[in-house]
Amino acid sequence: MKKFLLFIAGLIALGILLANLGPMILLGVSVWLLYVVFKQFMKSDSTAGKIAWVVLGLIILSVAVSNIYAVIGLAAAYGLYLIYKSWTSKTEGSSKSFKSDDPFTNFEREWAELNK
Rank of each mutant, 00 (worst) to 15 (best):
L14I: 14
I16E: 02
L17M: 14
L17C: 12
L17Q: 07
L17K: 02
L18Q: 07
A19V: 07
N20Y: 15
L21V: 06
L21W: 09
P23C: 09
M24V: 02
M24N: 04
M24W: 05
I25G: 01
L26S: 08
L26E: 12
L27W: 04
L27M: 13
L27G: 00
G28H: 08
V29M: 12
V29P: 01
V29C: 01
V29A: 13
S30E: 09
S30K: 06
S30D: 06
S30T: 03
V31T: 07
W32Q: 06
L33P: 00
Y35L: 11
Y35S: 14
V36I: 10
V36W: 08
V36H: 08
V36M: 08
V36D: 14
V36Y: 08
V37C: 08
V37P: 00
V37T: 14
V37M: 06
V37A: 13
K39R: 13
Q40D: 12
Q40I: 01
Q40Y: 02
Q40M: 07
F41K: 05
F41M: 09
M42V: 12
S44E: 15
D45R: 09
D45W: 09
S46R: 02
S46E: 06
S46W: 03
S46K: 03
T47A: 12
A48Q: 07
G49K: 03
G49M: 08
G49I: 10
G49S: 13
K50N: 05
K50H: 08
I51C: 09
A52C: 03
V55S: 07
V55R: 12
L56N: 01
I59R: 00
I60R: 07
I60A: 14
L61Q: 01
S62H: 01
S62R: 06
V63S: 02
A64M: 11
V65I: 15
V65L: 15
S66R: 06
S66P: 00
S66E: 08
S66F: 14
I68F: 12
Y69N: 14
A70M: 09
A70T: 02
G73S: 10
A75M: 14
A75G: 05
A75C: 14
A76K: 02
A76C: 03
A76Y: 03
Y78E: 07
G79H: 04
Y81G: 02
Y81N: 01
L82T: 04
I83K: 01
K85N: 10
K85C: 05
K85L: 09
S86A: 11
W87E: 02
W87F: 11
S89I: 13
S89P: 03
S89R: 04
K90P: 00
T91Y: 15
T91E: 14
T91Q: 06
T91M: 08
T91I: 06
E92L: 13
G93Y: 13
G93C: 06
G93T: 02
G93P: 00
S95K: 09
K96F: 10
K96I: 05
